[in-house]
Amino acid sequence: MGKIGIYGSSFDPITNVHLWTASTIHHRCKLDQVIFLPCSNKRKDKQMKTEDEHRWNMLHLAIKNNPAFSADDYEMKQNAWNISTYETLKYFKSKYQQDTIYFIMGADLLVDIGKGKWGNSDLLVQENKFIVMARDGIDMLKTISSSPILRNNDDGETFHLIDKGLAMEISSSYIREEFSLDGEPRYLLPEECYQYIKKHSLYK
């Protein structure tokens, strides 16, 4: 039985912080694999202007040299507008039945789940395991204890809380803004992704 982390994001574009986060979690949580899961551009809470093909290509360029990293386009291929993390995790648990599946997320998302803002929030927490990365200004233990959804579905192994040790919060939106204004975000993302964006004139 292996341990697999599902790392979902828009990856528009993937950044060095995404890679560092995945590497940190892989090492500290003794995962066998981290699967990068780019979200669908059809989700109501995401408004992406970058074509799926470009996000997918850059993701592969970024992770190709790490055998512990892989990518899955499950959410990209979904046609439904109401794609939920609950259904996505059901898919991965069915695909990897002999392994333990963890959903990787930031503490800001833990807050939203605790407030019931995600589809099937109660069942999502009850039936799954999470690796939660610290975010500045968020007390993860207090977040869990103050939410009935989180605390009443926590069996002691539901949440694996990780403090990265460094506050590295460079966002994809910052990189997109830099490209759009002729800035220079070169060393904030993998070199091959930087060159890919230049070649295809993305984020202009």
Rank of each mutant, 00 (worst) to 15 (best):
G2A: 14
I6W: 05
G8Y: 01
S9E: 10
I14R: 05
I14T: 07
T15F: 09
N16C: 13
L19K: 01
L19R: 02
W20S: 13
W20Q: 11
T21D: 05
T24Q: 11
T24C: 13
I25E: 02
H26G: 02
H26I: 10
R28M: 13
R28W: 08
K30W: 07
L31G: 03
L31A: 02
Q33Y: 06
F36G: 06
C39M: 03
S40H: 05
S40K: 01
N41P: 02
K44F: 07
K46Y: 07
K46D: 11
M48C: 08
K49V: 12
K49N: 11
T50V: 13
E51V: 10
H54F: 08
L61V: 12
A62S: 11
A62P: 06
I63F: 01
K64Y: 00
N65V: 00
N66K: 10
P67I: 03
P67G: 02
F69R: 00
S70F: 01
A71Y: 05
D73Y: 06
Y74P: 00
E75W: 08
M76H: 10
M76P: 09
Q78K: 12
A80M: 14
N82F: 10
N82D: 15
N82K: 00
N82I: 02
I83G: 00
S84E: 09
E87L: 06
K90E: 15
K90V: 06
Y91H: 15
K93C: 01
K95R: 15
K95Q: 14
I101V: 07
Y102I: 02
D108W: 11
D108H: 08
L110N: 04
L110G: 10
G116A: 10
G116N: 12
W118N: 08
G119D: 14
N120G: 02
S121E: 02
D122T: 14
L123A: 15
L123E: 15
V125C: 09
E127S: 09
E127W: 03
K129R: 15
K129F: 06
F130N: 04
I131D: 01
V132E: 05
M133R: 04
M133Q: 11
M133Y: 05
M133I: 15
A134T: 14
D139L: 09
D139R: 10
L141R: 14
K142R: 13
S145R: 12
L150K: 04
L150H: 01
L150W: 04
R151S: 15
N152P: 04
N153F: 09
N153L: 05
T158N: 04
H160C: 12
L161P: 00
D163M: 01
M168K: 13
M168S: 09
M168P: 00
E169V: 06
S171I: 05
S172E: 03
Y174H: 12
I175E: 07
E177A: 12
E178C: 13
S180Q: 13
S180W: 13
D182G: 08
E184G: 00
L188E: 07
P190K: 02
E191S: 07
Q195H: 12
Q195K: 12
K199E: 12
H200A: 01
S201K: 15
Y203E: 08
